[in-house]
């Protein structure tokens, strides 16, 4: 297991990069476990949503998991542990190893804006995969934030009586459901953009599988 590349060795390019481990194994393992957990949670969550829709639509049954409310709840409340424990490992390892600081800092609104403009014009380079651009940093930190929010709002829905502080923070039981829904929607949107970006720069997929 190697540590994340630091900005100090940013001078290496090309062939050197392909032999370097850019994503340490714990990042790759937790990433793919997270993918599985989110997939189960989102699809079973849609089935749970369908039992009592908040808005004027339901999700097509074919893309939901669990078959009926009871089945979907079993999936949801099993996968939540996977998401929770895996997420905790990811966050702790990120903080302890210093990867969070090296990979995501510094980040300013100006950088995000300029990189976003460059990205939309197709001018953003992906030559050095050891470094995230500002839009990537923002998007990945946003995804982490959404995952934290989806867990907290989910806890408020599940245990609204036992966790009064969380319930009030979410604006009450009914509102916690709405927060939970939009956190899910945000994550699904992130995933769509993320998958499109990976399709545009396929070598990043290899990076998340082999680490190089």
């Amino acid at each position: 297991m190697s540590t994340a590349a630091s900005p100090a060795d940013g001078g290496l390019h090309g062939a050197d990069v392909s032999r370097q481990t850019v994503q340490p194994s714990w990042v790759r393992v937790t990433h793919w476990i997270n993918v599985l957990a989110v997939l189960v949670l989102v699809t079973s969550g849609w089935r749970i949503y369908n039992a009592s829709p908040i808005f004027g639509f339901t999700f097509p049954k074919q893309i939901t998991l669990g078959g009926w409310l009871g089945g979907a709840l079993l999936w949801h409340f099993a996968a939540m542990w996977v998401l929770f424990v895996n997420g905790l490992i990811y966050l702790c390892a990120n903080i302890v190893s210093g990867r969070l600081r090296h990979r995501f800092w510094p980040l300013t609104a100006r950088q995000i804006a300029s990189d976003l403009v460059a990205a939309l014009r197709g001018h953003l380079s992906h030559d050095d995969l050891r470094q995230y651009n500002a839009v990537q940093k923002f998007a990945y930190l946003g995804a982490i934030g959404l995952l934290v929010l989806v867990v907290l709002s989910g806890l408020a829905v599940w245990k609204s009586v036992q966790l009064p502080l969380l319930r009030e923070l979410m604006g009450g039981y009914d509102n916690a459901r709405i927060v939970h829904f939009f956190a899910m929607a945000g994550l699904v949107f992130f995933t769509l953009v993320h998958v499109i970006m990976v399709a545009l720069v396929p070598k990043t997929l290899l990076l998340m599988i082999r680490g190089r």
């Binding site: 699809t43 939901t64 998991l65 009926w68 009871g70 089945g71 079993l74």
Partner: peptide, 14 residues
């Protein structure tokens, strides 16, 4: 019975 009629194809594949 609860999952026999409850399991979806996606769940099985996964």
């Amino acid at each position: 019975l609860f999952l026999r009629h409850g399991m979806t194809l996606g769940g099985l594949v996964m």
